[in-house]
Write a protein that binds this DNA or RNA. Sequence first.
DNA 1: TGTACATCAGTGAACGCGCGTTCACTGATGTAC
DNA 2: TGTACATCAGTGAACGCGCGTTCACTGATGTAC
Lengths: 216, 216
Amino acid sequence: MTRTTKEKPYHHGDLRATLLAAALTLAEKSGLQGVTLREVARQAGVSHAAPYHHFSDKGALVEALAIMGFEQLTARLRAAVAMIPEDSEARLTAVGVAYVHFALEQPAAFRIMFRPELRSNNEHAVTSAAITAAGQQAYQVLRDEVVSGQKAGRIRSDPPDVLTLTAWSAMHGLATLIIDGAPSWTTIEPGEADYRTEVAARVAALVIEGLRARPE
Amino acid sequence: MTRTTKEKPYHHGDLRATLLAAALTLAEKSGLQGVTLREVARQAGVSHAAPYHHFSDKGALVEALAIMGFEQLTARLRAAVAMIPEDSEARLTAVGVAYVHFALEQPAAFRIMFRPELRSNNEHAVTSAAITAAGQQAYQVLRDEVVSGQKAGRIRSDPPDVLTLTAWSAMHGLATLIIDGAPSWTTIEPGEADYRTEVAARVAALVIEGLRARPE
DNA sequence: TGTACATCAGTGAACGCGCGTTCACTGATGTAC
DNA sequence: TGTACATCAGTGAACGCGCGTTCACTGATGTAC
């Protein structure tokens, strides 16, 4: 029994989840350097020492965010795959577009996932085994599609990791550049509301063109 | 006359350049959050108030680093182009490889160039017109090659900016992923000393394959 | 050539600030008998 | 069912720290006459 009606088993309920959500909101709103343990606690309406009952230190909280992010990304990529059962190439495109979408919708999470230095307290990059494993799962979704395309004779027979890394790089680069505002260099029209989706689809299509198996 | 033998026109000479160099070294060594005005001054062997005679604030120093970085990148890309006069596709590949090389050799500069939030004191991304202009110049080198390839009938006739952005994204993504250690997901052999150059060349080749004009 | 002055790069003390982390504590929840 | 106790989440004060920036200053260089 207990924890019947409410889902707050103890005192104030799952402060852990509240802290994570607050940290993400904060990162979205005030930038990554705005994410301090004290401010996170403040946003969660709790004293600044409370987080230490849920995370050993600040780095542990950020690491948890990165892992959550990769899990969500993996889910998004898998969902994209699941929606297009038949066409191998269309699935690859969909995965690429979904990747960029995720980054655009959750830029803060995306950045945290790929910035190892955020996890360390003051020193160099630290990527834990848990984060690597979470990232690998997302990578695997794309790689599976590449291999599947190869089996169907649609994708060239180079080493799958090279092909996957190529596609991954393109979509990752595009996402990163958009988030950081670099495409203002181009003369691409930012007119339409989702021109970025449009661009993502075109980039994905062009890259897949390069990965395609050719008759000759 | 004066400033004859030495190049130190005033007191200690060009402290400005010394500060910039110290900041870059510091970023390379201690990460981006290790770059503080006080530490930069310390490394330059000068009091912590001295930098204010050369930069209005910390953000101005970081901005100067970003501009310098883009200028170096542009020079590198142009040098790559200049070394291969004849073959349009080979030139494109060379630019892509040079891009990744630059990022691998100067990861700190590369990061500063593409992280607008580093320039603001505490708030959101700020990209000055000067940085945008510097970035645009580098972009233009790649774009020129794309257009040149189109004129030679080797590159498909899509809008040049879309093609350029595709190629740029792929190389930028690869560089970013390598710098941040993500390719540990793959099973690509990090055996050879310059396997990353090898990978960059293969990725560039695959992407250009997708941009190529096709007979049919 | 020499002196008086202006200019400007660098100094060192001081400011206010928010951070991460620790610590003894309080108070609520759950458990044993 | 009731009481005694253990557990554990959250509190608030305190620590030491390094930061960015300001300020009155010092001292060296360059300039005018």
